[in-house]
């Protein structure tokens, strides 16, 4: 037992630094990805020819490939184009790829929520003489945004978990710090990864619970027993 306390005491500063990094990367990616995804989602909901299909392709490409592959493309392929502005550090590549990945999910959620608002709302607002943007801003979005809360927080859990993948390009987030700690204590692999899993759990589980709570608030799911 004393051994485990010693290990914990030795690796705690590293795990803390890793957690802070995970926290910031996930927060910034969530914020940037949500803004980008929101704009794409609103644009897609207007069904403007060509633009709608173009963003649809964007979403399909991002959903059809693993995040790890996207990360490699942003980290290895873009600098290979020879364009000065795309010579990114691993931090920039990590941040951009995670944000772009987030945006594809957010865009789908926002468009689905806008589509749920009944067409009568559009028609009534048009009858009152409002233009497209005021209808969106004053009538449709306030109703739609409430619906986005549960799926959005589900996506956020996913983004937090995906930050672990950033360790492969050397971002010193929680998982990477764990790998470094294991080089110091090779016999405690299971214990150290267990502690890391616990840290992720403490970070993600409240968001997960919030998702469930918001789902119950927005729409009703039934609780069923088989016995």
């Amino acid at each position: 037992m004393q051994h485990y306390f010693d290990v914990i005491a030795a690796i705690l500063p590293f795990l803390w630094a890793g957690f802070v990094q995970t926290f910031w990367v996930s927060l910034v990616a969530i914020a940037a990805g949500s803004v980008l995804g929101f704009l794409i989602g609103v644009a897609r909901s207007q069904r403007i020819p060509l633009l709608h299909q173009l963003f649809g392709l964007y979403i399909h490409i991002l959903r059809g490939t693993p995040f790890l592959v996207q990360l490699y493309v942003f980290y290895f392929v873009l600098p290979n184009t020879g364009i000065e502005a795309l010579q990114w550090s691993s931090e920039t590549a990590a941040f951009v790829s995670l944000s772009v990945y987030t945006s594809s999910y957010v865009a789908e959620i926002v468009m689905a929520a806008i589509d749920t608002v009944p067409a009568g709302q559009w028609e009534a607002a048009t009858a009152l003489g409002l233009k497209r943007l005021p209808i969106l801003g004053l009538v449709v979005l306030p109703q739609a945004l409430k619906l986005t809360v549960p799926p959005m927080s589900g996506v956020y859990v996913n983004i937090i978990k995906n930050t672990a993948i950033l360790s492969v390009i050397g971002i010193s987030e929680l998982t990477r710090q764990g790998e470094i700690s294991i080089m110091r204590f090779p016999s405690d692999v299971l214990f150290i990864y267990g502690v890391i899993a616990l840290v992720y759990f403490v970070y993600c589980y409240p968001v997960l619970r919030f998702t469930r709570w918001a789902e119950r608030k927005v729409g009703g799911t039934r609780v069923v027993n088989l016995d």
């Binding site: 978990k161 672990a164 360790s167 998982t175 764990g178 990864y193 267990g194 899993a197 993600c204 997960l208």
Partner: peptide, 23 residues
């Protein structure tokens, strides 16, 4: 279910790959 849903797959893979042989 809560443990799996709230921890990254990569960490779970590491737990099995490095951890299972020590158990």
């Amino acid at each position: 279910v809560a443990f799996i849903l709230a921890t990254p797959l990569l960490v779970q893979i590491y737990l099995i790959y490095y951890g299972l042989p020590s158990l």
